[in-house]
Design a protein around this nucleic acid. Sequence first.
DNA 1: CTGTTAGCGCTTTCAT
DNA 2: ATGAAAGCGCTAACAG
Lengths: 325, 325
Amino acid sequence: MKITMKEVAKLAGVGVGTVSRVLNNGSVKESTRLKVEAAMKELNYQPDLYARSFKTNRTNTIALIIPTVWHPFFSEFAWHVEHQLEKNNYKVYLCNSSGNADKEQEYIQMVVQNKVDGIIGITYSDIDQYISSNLPFVSIDRYFTEDVIYVTADNSAGGRLAVNELRARGCQKLAYIGGYQETPNETKNRRKYFEIECQRLKQSYEILDMLEPLTDLADRLTEFLTAHPEIDGIFTINDSMALDVQRVLTKLGRRVPEDVQIIGFDGQRNREGEKYLVSSIAQPVELMGQTAVDLILQVINGQDVQQRTVLPVAFVEGGTTQSKE
Amino acid sequence: MKITMKEVAKLAGVGVGTVSRVLNNGSVKESTRLKVEAAMKELNYQPDLYARSFKTNRTNTIALIIPTVWHPFFSEFAWHVEHQLEKNNYKVYLCNSSGNADKEQEYIQMVVQNKVDGIIGITYSDIDQYISSNLPFVSIDRYFTEDVIYVTADNSAGGRLAVNELRARGCQKLAYIGGYQETPNETKNRRKYFEIECQRLKQSYEILDMLEPLTDLADRLTEFLTAHPEIDGIFTINDSMALDVQRVLTKLGRRVPEDVQIIGFDGQRNREGEKYLVSSIAQPVELMGQTAVDLILQVINGQDVQQRTVLPVAFVEGGTTQSKE
DNA sequence: CTGTTAGCGCTTTCAT
DNA sequence: ATGAAAGCGCTAACAG
């Protein structure tokens, strides 16, 4: 049998309104509060959150939309978001969009029906129409023409940093290797500022930027690296690509990092606190998650927040670069 | 202004009961159903799911409890579970337990409060008391003395398979390298049946099994591999460990797979459909996710299901083994 | 087949 | 400071 407020009220000898007040920190005389709390404990009362949400239209739930799980950055990000939200007594709906615009829309739709209090999302589709519907929304790594609130790592600085770290380690001929999608995206700054920095420094470089989805990746890498044997410093769109490049180089008989040095992007690790898979420009994933949560909570609470938050990146050593000269 | 059933009923010229019936596929005359649907469309009616859950005590939500995100298997599993559940019109709460028993309990508690319809969990704590409270529960990779429903990959077969694949590739001296936790766990069968199979075949082998959390991993691996230079075939608890071992071997000047072959466990990939990080015993993650979902839905619907489901594993080639002799 | 109605458990006025 | 009472939007039982 389910214990409701009524039972608690009866046992404590008060009205249900009073029980509700102690639950919500309303003003209650200390002595009655004690009585009520005792009754709640005795009956092991658990408030029905659905009844409450039904009444208040607040669900204490936010939806987290993630494109794919095949990229560790997303899972890590999800982890931090959940962790932070849980601290704030929020639940999170996991929504995998599969990077598919329709599914994203569908999810946003669904999520609206379910009266979530807000959405944190790494999305690719154009969600303008929903933003306007004043549902709190925080976006990651993606900016829109509209005034969507978003947080991103400093991809531009990352691109520049990669150039400088490679050069500081004696690389003579650089290359950028990545994949891209049509949709605008903060991550495109990785390549863009890599190029800008190279040009600024009169550093010669090559570019291999492939439209996703990536087929025959190994072949295309082999071809590119064979065609440009002079390349000795490579910056990749992410760590996963760095690993691919490393594998191909090894197969071609080139040693990493002795012959060719590689810097990825993300700062992936196999285990928390463990060493990085490759030398990389690390994103502050945890900070990004925390920030996203802080922002969405602020928006939910009606505070206004700055639209754009850029978080710093850092070079991390992971074995695919040599020590600085 | 929010559109409720009342508005729809009025516009369609019917009672709210009828609207509810068309929504729930009750028996309604075709002509009235059409009228109601037209009205719903015209008003862009969205049923209030919270009101419904409040009334029916069914939330169409399940909680997914995951220990950590640092292991790709879990994120992948989460992905499949979510995907499958979404197909069945269920939402999923993401719950990170951090492998912490208190947090698990807390989450189960919370999740009960929120009236989820069931829990799918990779948990370590002893959740007996909650199972008995007849909340549908499906466990992964872990079995209890109680009759908890669980699904697992065939770890025993995996252990045996590793031995045979290594031997078929010419390895003379095998080793198992892994980490473990105190709690009983299906994954312990990987080591157990590795040993059993070696003994059955009179195959000589070494064991390095380390209590987690793993500190100084690289040092301990170096020590072990240096102490046993004759080892030429290694089976590891998972792919992540396989990568660690590979890295250490490379540093020691041993070539993989020419000098030493390695088989991991899990079948991790960087991207869907891409090649495996290491040669491995692949778990059927997708199938495991699907099965877990099927099971929980069956339990929710009051059907009875078998307690234990063991799913097949398979050897996959990932570059850390040579071709069969 | 369909309209009416009684709550589900909670929050929130409104009196007291 | 607190009790009483009015719903929130929906489903389900009951009449008709």
